[in-house]
Simulated scan of single mutants.
Amino acid sequence: MKPYYERAGIALYHGDCHEVFPVLEPGKFSVMLTDPPYCSGAATSSAKTADPVAKYCQNGDAKGRPTFSGDAKDQRSFVAWSVFWMSACRRLLKDGGYGLVFTDWRQLPSVTDAFQAADFTWRGLIAWDKGLSSRSPHKGYARHQCEYLVWGTNGKCRPRADAGPFPGCHHESVRQADKFHIVGKPTELMVKLVEFCPVGESLIDCFAGSGTTLVAAAKSGRYGVGIEREEANCEIAARRLDRFFESPERQEN
C-alpha cells in the first residue's frame, strides 16, 4: 500500500486502520495521538445513527466541511471496536511510547475501559478547555466546555530529559478559520500535544481527519503517519501540508 500523500517525513494513508496497520513497522512510533469518532452526541438510536453534521454542527451547518462515517456505533460496539484499533496501534509503539486518545464526557468511561483492555497503562486525563463559547442547552446548565484526552503508556513511563512535565489542561478556543473538519481540533492545541513525541521521532494518528496532527508534527520537527478513510478529508490534509511545506515559515527554517 502506497501513501496517499508523502513528503518530508510525513505520510498519509487513505484507508481503514485495519488495512494500513499491517504495512507499518512494529515498534516504530513514539506516540499515538488521535481523535477517533466519538459515537456520541445522541440519546436515542435514531439520533445516534444520524449524520455527524446533524449531531455535532450547530443548526446542522457544516460550513462546507465534509462529513465522516463510523460514528453510529452503540456503546458496546464502540468499546469492542476501540479495543481492536487501540491494541493494533499499541503494537506499533516503542516500549514506553505514549498513547493519547480524545473523547468527550459521554464516552469517557468507555474509552478508559478500552484503553486498559488494549493493554495500555492508563496514567490520567488531560483536559481541553474550549472556552466560554461552548454550547449549553439552556440557562441553569453547565457548559460542555471540556473534551478530554485519555493518556498512558505502552509499559513504563520513563523519565525524560528533553521535555515535560506536560500540562494537564490546555486552553485553546476553536477558531473557524483554523477548522477544516466538522469536529477538528485547533492547530495550536495539537502543536502543544505533539511535544510528547521527541523531536526527530515519529507519531501516528489513526484517524487523521483534515491532517491537523500531521501539520502540527511538521511544524514542530517531528515525523508522522496518518490514516484517514474519507478521501475528501485526505485531500484537505494534503493541501494543508503542501501549504505548510511551501510557506515562508517553512522556508525560513
Rank of each mutant, 00 (worst) to 15 (best):
M1C: 07
Y4Q: 02
Y5S: 08
R7W: 03
A8E: 15
Y13T: 11
H14W: 12
V20W: 04
V20S: 08
P22C: 14
T34H: 08
T34A: 13
P36Y: 04
P37Y: 09
Y38F: 15
C39P: 02
S40Y: 07
G41K: 05
A47H: 00
T49R: 15
D51T: 03
D51C: 08
D51S: 08
P52H: 08
A54I: 07
K55A: 08
G60E: 06
T67A: 09
S69Y: 01
S69L: 10
A72Y: 10
A72S: 15
R76M: 00
R76Q: 10
V79Q: 12
M86L: 15
C89S: 14
L92T: 02
L92D: 02
L93H: 04
D95H: 05
G96T: 00
Y98M: 12
G99R: 03
L100D: 02
V101H: 09
V101Y: 04
W105N: 09
S110E: 15
A118Q: 05
T121P: 04
T121C: 06
W122F: 15
L125P: 03
L125V: 13
D129T: 07
D129Y: 01
G131N: 05
L132W: 00
S133G: 10
R135G: 01
S136N: 00
K139A: 04
Y141K: 06
H144V: 02
Q145I: 11
Q145K: 13
C146W: 01
E147N: 13
Y148V: 08
P159E: 03
D162H: 10
D162M: 05
D162Q: 03
F166N: 15
H170T: 08
H171N: 12
E172V: 13
E172T: 13
H181I: 07
K185T: 11
K185V: 08
P186S: 11
P186M: 15
L189T: 01
M190E: 09
K192T: 08
L193N: 03
L193E: 06
C197R: 00
P198E: 00
P198R: 03
V199H: 09
V199D: 06
E201H: 03
D205P: 05
D205K: 10
D205G: 04
T213C: 05
L214I: 09
A218C: 04
K219V: 15
S220A: 15
G221H: 06
R222I: 12
G224H: 04
V225T: 09
E228F: 07
E228G: 01
R229C: 09
R229H: 01
E230V: 11
E230R: 06
N233R: 06
R240H: 05
L241M: 14
D242M: 14
R243T: 14
E246V: 09
S247Y: 09
P248K: 14
P248Y: 05
E249R: 12
R250Y: 10
E252N: 09
E252R: 14
N253V: 13
